[in-house]
Design a binder for these strands. Structure first.
Lengths: 198, 198
DNA sequence: CCTAGAACTCAACACTCATTGAATTCAACG
DNA sequence: CGTTGAATTCAATGAGTGTTGAGTTCTAGG
């Protein structure tokens, strides 16, 4: 069979792959695509840079693989439409802040976002995230300009992530998650199901 | 006297300096600090790379000088507090969208924002912009957590700029300025002078 | 006219980057 | 035990980076 079984000092395949992926995600999230060098990622994973290209083909391939999102995320977004309509803003705020606080999903999102500023392919990933996944939610909520609502919600999400985690402006950067949810929920409520203009 | 007077094919000092500054602003705004190379900027300005360091000392110095904002901008922000209180969101939305559409100020803001993702010094500039300049406005509007309101407004501004100009998500990227103002004004109104939570 | 100094260019340096191909080390299997 | 093949390393390559110092060309002042 093909189950792992490391012995000696050499790690099994998936084990090393995962170590590289983990280090790469952290690096992309922390310093962006350009400054996350193969060398720094390899060093963090305790590995030779050449091994990264052996596993992932190229830096581009590494980035693509490592910033992939679980496909069930789109469904989870759409699922937020279920439940009381006057609380959808709150549910959405909880979901977004939850994903940004979750150590499994945060690096993926920050890697995409930080890299989007200089790496066109990363920008495309963010674009897709905003218009497709958020579009699923808004179009199952209303018929009144759902694409506009999706992109407005996206604006708010991107702004939150950028200001809180990338630029780190106080007091937002140190606010606890619950307070962030409280403060954002009304805005999302209006954007998602309220009147778009006054 | 020291007035310019170009003749022959050589340009006067300020003329060349300005050409370099212009090209640098555009480059930083378009591709961010790291990908805006001295060579590409020099080529765009029709000049040798060494001349840039002759004028600006270093790439860092160039960036710092070229992304400086007119000092009267802070005052302009605070000035938005004057006028009917129930329309301050609209005035603020107009001011922000105006700055982002104005070809003189847009590159400066986008250069800061795009570079903030990977360049810590640029991140500091954005941080300063949000907490200082927006703080001036909110603290002259209310005593109810003005710093929190400033950073929330900043979140919205950053999100707008990033989604509309950097990532370019439709339909926001192609929306005309007036429509953007209409759609953002209510959000700003609530953030600036409305109740912070429901 | 001539000379001082500023604008400007050229070629090079020292580095860092991603990627490569050949070598080596190991684990599993017959 | 010996051999196949994958995991892993090593050293090198070529391209691109910011910066430097010496050199050239122009303008302005005496």
């Amino acid at each position: 069979m093909s189950s792992t079984g490391r012995s000696g000092r050499r790690r099994g395949e998936t084990q090393t792959r995962d170590a590289i992926a983990f280090a790469a995600r952290a690096a992309f999230a922390d310093v962006g695509y350009d400054r996350a060098t193969m060398r720094s990622i390899a060093a963090a994973a305790g590995v030779d840079p050449a091994l990264i290209v052996h596993f992932f083909g190229s830096k581009e391939g590494l980035f693509r693989e490592v910033t992939a999102l679980p496909p069930e995320m789109g469904a989870a977004m759409a699922g937020l439409a279920d439940g009381p309509r006057q609380e959808v803003g709150l549910r959405f705020a909880q979901a977004v802040v939850g994903m940004l606080e979750n150590p499994a999903t945060r690096p993926v999102i920050l890697a995409r976002l930080r890299s989007a500023a200089s790496h066109p392919e990363a920008a495309a990933l963010v674009r897709e995230l905003v218009s497709r996944d958020l579009g699923l939610l808004t179009s199952s909520l209303t018929d009144d300009r759902p694409e506009a609502r999706a992109v407005l919600a996206g604006t708010q999400v991107v702004g939150l992530a950028f200001v809180r985690y990338v630029v780190r402006v106080e007091p937002l950067a140190s606010m606890d998650a619950a307070a962030v949810v409280d403060v954002l929920a009304p805005t999302f409520q209006r954007i998602l199901v309220g009147p778009l203009t006054d």
